[in-house]
Design a protein around this nucleic acid. Sequence first.
DNA 1: AGGAATTCGGGTAATTTGGGTT
DNA 2: ACTGTCCAAATTACCCGAATTC
Lengths: 78, 78
Amino acid sequence: MTATTQQSRQNGQEQLLTPGEVAALFRVDPKTVTRWATAGRIGSIRTPGGHRRFRESEVRTLLAELTSDINQPGGQSF
Amino acid sequence: MTATTQQSRQNGQEQLLTPGEVAALFRVDPKTVTRWATAGRIGSIRTPGGHRRFRESEVRTLLAELTSDINQPGGQSF
DNA sequence: AGGAATTCGGGTAATTTGGGTT
DNA sequence: ACTGTCCAAATTACCCGAATTC
């Protein structure tokens, strides 16, 4: 198996992203992504050391919602 | 044989994970997992050669505890 | 017995965290 | 209410050579 060192082992596992990667996708500061997690707008997984990891699927979903105007019931607008 | 099938199905024994395996679950470097073991944040078993192995149940429990989902069952939110 | 991949160790950059501020 | 920046401290990532595992 030719793998660098990282994310190419668990095939059926959930892929996780670092704050910096998520920030790059949204074109925002990593700090802003952290605020989203703190505000409960996005799920996060903390490492035992306290750093956050984000689910790629969830991030992509959120990113898709921002790509086009979404105003559907259940979207929590309060 | 692939990297994910290093160990065959033993009897009722505890499944052990390699540092790389645990690292993939948390999306960190295998070396980071080693530091967690050194810091006592996660239990580890050493092979006669000095390599570390981790209990799968403990790892999954730890992963679940550090996971904060926003609208999905299974995660504690308090 | 040889080979590929992983995991030791240490040491040094890069990223992340949290608070406070603009 | 939301985001970007500054700061210090903590955590994590990549570098190497050598040992271990399968």
